[in-house]
Write a protein that binds this DNA or RNA. Structure first.
Length: 565
RNA sequence: GGGCCCGUGGCCUAGCUGGAUAGGGCGCCAGCCUUCUAAGCUGGAUGUCCGGGGUUCGAAUCCCCGCGGGUCCGCCA
């Protein structure tokens, strides 16, 4: 019902399993997806050779000879047994799933698992820059995929409203002269980052400023209500500005939680007291730490959780936050930059010391840098996300202007926005998260090939054919010809790709699949005339299938897909 | 000094639980718009899979040693 490939895979696995028992092989074996044109699944027989004391080729032909299935057939190919699906069974099965699932094709049944996924959580001290964009894009895409794969997901933004960066922002906002260079927009994140940058340079020059900022932090740490609400008043507009930019990328959150909460409600004190009881806890000059000798590597293995001054640390608050999250969901996923790797393992051990069995699962990503080096909001060496979006939308706007002079201005603007935003999201998600990205304008603004516009364009083509068909296309199961079956094979992979992305927590693979579908559809478009052909009704169903899968795939990537582009 | 991640044609990238000719994309060259949107399609050139050892019937994939890049090892966040 959900996955057209499932029944075939099961039949092959059962059949092969029986043969393995018959020939007395109890070792490992796996089915793999063979290269293009060699069937549906393959069984390499090399691993069986030494156990059975026979040549792989001989074993392969033996297994192929013994195999029998209702829907699948086997064939020897040297040391491999290749399994193929007889006739058009896969195509028909795919059409059946499409008919049964309709617009939800690709989604998986509910797992009943509640997942709290924390992402972004950027300090609210200025506009998001391109480097900070990778986190929300990975997080939001992951959330969309997990939901589609049946998990019950809540996304959360942990607002750092009490840290040093924010204190610098607050001091700057309170003390900045009125003649600071004005921002190019009136968005609060852009306006107030000027005060933040100014405060940073003042702090470096003047120790008195540094100590004023320190005392602000102490006020918050002490749980002083006045200081906390003063902070909140300054942070709120900045955070709103950041959220506005994220919303433009179709990224929103189910929940927000303030870091200050854990100071105010006493959770941090509980964590500190709990950790002090740990057998690996120790005191040194009035500060408390966990000695993680043997658990972590580096110059120091001490994990400090209480300062000699008695105030808490970011990491301690983070432990309190994770305990809180653990109480709210069955599983936790955090999206973090690779610079947080050590902290994540320290956090895990600390939770263990507090008697917590579960651990947050972490998806790490490497940084996005500029060709000239690291980005820094403080130094102003940045490409702001807002500027990148504006630039992408503007470029898309010029494209639309020259390609589609026929449509009205509102429509053009809508398409430009969709293409610009899509290009950015696609470009940021398509690469495996552990690879670093060097930001280059020409790549970020690429509208050809392996890009969002490529897939959006295919979607629009599909939409336009259906519109031209003139009537509602209803799903139906029919006998596909060769070209059609080839296309349906790509469509049949969607549910298993969703499962793979969700289970391995690798959202970037969805981008690759969407690209494959667009390529397959473009070929189908070239080879198979739809409107006016004698297979018009059947082919319209395939176009609808393409539109459904492309649409759902783009939704999973958070990329808009207008019907015309 | 130590830990973790990355290193694939000029550029970006998939493949990495070892297996059938290393997939894509950008760029380059040559074609295709009286045919459902050419942001498309077809064909072509371009690869010491960072280097060296090892394990194996077989290594881009596993192990060891290097090299290059990233990142971390604060009573900062």
């Amino acid at each position: 019902m959900h996955d057209p490939q499932e029944a075939f895979v099961e039949e092959i696995e059962e059949g092969v399993g029986r043969i393995m028992a018959d020939i007395g092989y109890s070792g490992e074996w796996v089915l793999e997806v063979p290269p293009e044109g060699m069937g549906f699944r393959a069984l390499p027989c090399f691993p069986l050779a030494s156990a059975l004391k026979k040549a792989p080729g001989e074993i392969a032909s033996d297994i192929a000879g013994r195999y029998s299935g209702d829907m699948t057939i086997s064939e020897t190919a040297g040391p491999y047994v290749n399994f193929s699906i007889g006739g058009t069974a896969l195509g028909r099965k795919t059409l059946e799933c499409l008919e049964g699932m309709g617009p939800r094709y690709g989604s998986l049944p509910s797992t009943g698992m509640s997942i709290l996924l924390e992402h972004t959580s950027a300090n609210p001290n200025g506009p998001l820059h391109v480097g900070r964009t990778r986190n929300p894009i990975i997080g939001d895409t992951m959330a969309r995929i997990l939901r589609f794969a049946g998990d019950d997901v809540t996304t959360e933004y942990y607002v750092n409203d009490v840290g040093k960066q924010v204190a610098i922002l607050v001091w700057g906002t309170d003390n900045a002269p009125s003649d600071l260079p004005p921002a190019e927009t009136d968005k609060a994140d852009h306006v107030r980052v000027r005060a933040y940058q100014w405060a940073n340079s003042r702090m470096e020059d003047d120790p008195a400023v540094a100590s004023e900022i320190e005392s602000l932090i102490d006020g918050v740490e002490a749980g002083d209500a006045g200081t906390i609400s003063h902070f909140a008043g300054i942070v709120k507009p900045v955070l709103d500005g950041m959220l506005q930019s994220l919303a433009r990328l179709n990224i929103t959150y189910d929940s927000f939680i303030n870091e200050s909460q854990f100071i105010v409600n006493g959770d941090v004190v509980d964590v500190v007291n709990g950790l002090k009881k740990s057998p690996i806890a120790a005191e040194e000059d009035g500060a408390w730490f966990l000695d993680m000798e043997g658990l972590v590597h580096g110059r120091s293995t001490k994990f400090v959780f209480a300062r000699s001054s008695g105030t808490s640390l970011y990491t301690t608050r983070d432990i309190a936050y994770h305990k809180d999250k653990l109480a709210r969901a069955e599983a936790l996923i955090d999206i973090l930059g690779e610079d947080h790797k050590l902290q994540a393992t320290q956090l895990g051990h600390a939770l263990g010391e507090l008697g917590e069995e579960r651990r947050p699962e972490v998806v790490f990503y490497s940084f996005v840098s500029l060709p000239e080096g690291k980005m820094s909001t403080r130094k102003g060496v940045v490409v702001y996300m807002d500027d990148l979006i504006d630039e992408a939308v503007e470029l898309a706007r010029e494209e639309v202007e020259s390609r589609r002079p026929d449509i009205d201005e509102t429509k053009k603007a809508e398409i430009a926005e969709a293409v610009g935003v899509g290009a950015i999201r696609y470009n940021m998600i398509r690469v495996q998260s552990e690879k670093k990205i060097v930001f280059k304008w020409e790549e970020a603004l690429n509208f050809d090939g392996d890009s969002a516009p490529f897939a959006q364009y295919a979607f629009a083509r599909a939409s336009s054919i259906i519109a031209k068909g003139g009537k509602d296309v209803s799903w139906k199961v029919f006998e596909p010809d060769n070209e059609e079956a080839r296309f349906l094979e790509v469509i049949s992979r969607f549910p298993s790709v969703v499962r793979d992305c969700a289970e391995t927590r690798r959202p970037y693979r969805m981008a690759g699949y969407v690209h494959d579908v667009a390529v397959a559809f473009n070929q189908f478009y070239r080879d198979c005339k739809v409107i006016g052909s004698d297979r018009e009704e059947e082919r319209l169903v395939l176009v609808k299938a393409a539109r459904t899968v492309l649409g759902n795939g783009l939704d999973l990537l958070g990329i808009p897909h207008p019907d015309q582009i």
